[in-house]
Design a protein around this nucleic acid. Structure first.
Length: 189
DNA sequence: GATAAGATCATCT
DNA sequence: GATGATCTTATCA
């Protein structure tokens, strides 16, 4: 089945729909001669100015501006002085929202890359890739390789590291693919 | 197994 | 000057 690069209409849908359907899609990074790919297995949604866990709830600033723009653009920022987090902007212009990629599975080694900081390290993502248009298929994009993801394979939960956000921290806006398939993390010693 | 602390800096007050 | 959408290592039980 031919790989298809996801375009703007895909990312322009409601954030929770985009987040859920991104599971099982492939994040592809072309860095010079090297091409790396990871199957997305965990994401979180950050939705609107009301959501106190969402950076945009602090207002429209130079940093959060990209989340107010069109869908399908990357939002990359540095956290805790040493790690990058990679997000994909969703929904319509003027409505700040994004999906954070928390974990992927390395296509080559089948290793689980667990955690947003690790995902960015694995795919060589840093702030130079902020505000990149992911629908152009240049350095970074998302592919649909035709695999089906059963709804029953998806589990939800609270978002991580946002306990300060009050009731918003309780929303089950974290989605992951249950390791039902042959996703054995540490099989041999 | 669980919990705690340190690393380190762009961004905002 | 304070604070994270984190990760690693150390320490304790």
């Amino acid at each position: 089945m031919a790989a298809r690069i996801l375009k703007r209409p895909y990312f322009s849908r409601p954030t929770l729909q985009v987040a859920r359907s991104l599971l099982g899609k492939y994040l592809v990074r072309k860095n010079g001669r090297k091409t790396l790919a990871g199957r997305i297995v965990e994401v979180e949604a950050y939705i609107g100015m009301e959501d106190r866990a969402c950076h945009a709830s602090k207002g429209r600033t130079a940093r959060t501006e990209v989340m107010f723009g069109p869908a399908g653009i990357s939002y990359v920022y540095l956290i805790y002085g040493m790690y990058h987090c990679f997000n994909i902007v969703t929904e319509r212009v003027g409505y700040p929202s994004a999906v954070l990629v928390r974990a992927v599975e390395d296509v080559d080694t089948q290793a689980l890359i667990d955690g947003p900081g690790r995902v960015c390290r694995f795919l060589a993502i840093d702030r130079r890739l902020n505000r990149l248009d992911l629908t152009k298929g240049r350095a970074l994009w998302v592919e649909d390789r035709g695999g089906r993801t059963a709804a029953s394979a998806v589990t939800t939960g609270r978002r991580i590291g946002v306990d300060y956000a009050g009731i918003w921290a309780k929303r089950r806006w974290r989605f992951r693919l249950a390791p039902s398939q042959k996703l054995k993390v540490k099989s041999n010693k």
